[in-house]
Design a protein around this nucleic acid. Sequence first.
DNA 1: GTAAAAGTCAAGCGACCGTTTGACTTCCCT
DNA 2: AGGGAAGTCAAACGGTCGCTTGACTTTTAC
Lengths: 207, 207
Amino acid sequence: MRQEKTDLRREAGQRTRDDLLTAALGLLAERGQEGVTLREITQNAGANVAAVSYHFGSLKALCEVTIEHALERYLDAQIRELDALAETATLSELAEAFARPMMNALAAGGRELAVMRTVARVGIDPPEGWERLYGKFEQARQRALRVLATNLPEVDERELVFRVRCAAGMLNWLALAPIGTELAAEPADRVERMLIPVVTGAFRGAR
Amino acid sequence: MRQEKTDLRREAGQRTRDDLLTAALGLLAERGQEGVTLREITQNAGANVAAVSYHFGSLKALCEVTIEHALERYLDAQIRELDALAETATLSELAEAFARPMMNALAAGGRELAVMRTVARVGIDPPEGWERLYGKFEQARQRALRVLATNLPEVDERELVFRVRCAAGMLNWLALAPIGTELAAEPADRVERMLIPVVTGAFRGAR
DNA sequence: GTAAAAGTCAAGCGACCGTTTGACTTCCCT
DNA sequence: AGGGAAGTCAAACGGTCGCTTGACTTTTAC
């Protein structure tokens, strides 16, 4: 009983913290780091303005924690998909694994899509502390590069790196641009049937 | 003589106006609409803060004029490229024409790249008055779609629209992300040799 | 020559920003 | 029972924001 009370009390503080993170994620996805204000976050979270300083130290720190959470979640999911690939995977299978986390988010919409939007913005305006996740970032890229090199042994590696970055950028764009919200209204399998060939084609290249 | 003086004087007012537009373009390209401040623009332009209200009415109006200029310039260039295509153009030729304005800007860097960055941001945060250019936007898309449909008669038109949007998004991403600045340091023909196959592949699709 | 028009400028307006403060409540520990 | 830690809150801080004002200079028009 006393322990229950402890947990309940701790939940009160934790709840405010989580509400702030959720509100920050939504606004960061919508407007980016420059367009977010402390008062709007706290209002959406139903909290006092001082709560941000109390729980995170500053607005910037809250944004960094939020972005880092989103980025780590995305990279973990993508690495998981890529690691599940066979050594002999085709370009189409690579494209599917590479795009899977983004496709799932596009199909789910809501908070999942907000995570992706926030992640995509990192590629344009990198926040300060993001170097901490650079390792995971490189891990995903290297895994994709291996499969790519197996399928396209005649293509220069620098070009393969470029294609991975192009494909990643295209997926990020889908999350950020209005087309992302449009796709969220489509059946998931239809989105997949449209998107996979494009990513595969970008990987393969064509003259 | 009096006419010369008239012109010189008119240039004085026009010069401040142009300096404001240039400074606004640079900052809009760098930080986007939300991250731009009146005082930073006027400082970069060497003008007084009141100059913006005097010449444009408000900061928002200045931003809209700047963005519209950049967008119109981009669309005109792209439409020109696409209109120069033969009816029987290949996918690779289509890709080259489609990507030509962006590739030129990536090669030139500086102000040209700033124009592209500003244009690309329109796709994420559309400013208020951009509907005025929707016609040119559709014109470019329709022209690309025709060549695409000729080369890929077996593909559903909705899918072709999707591929055009993906390709455009990828190009926009190249302008916005750090990779854009990296490419600006490369030889132009090398960028072209890397980029065209990716765009072509995205157009063509692959299983 | 002279009055109107065009343009520039320093100063200041109210509004909103992120952050801090100190009082206050609630719960844990002994 | 009571000291203390955790958390919340209204209020206020200094600073920056976009924008306006009114004085001032320069150019234009007659």
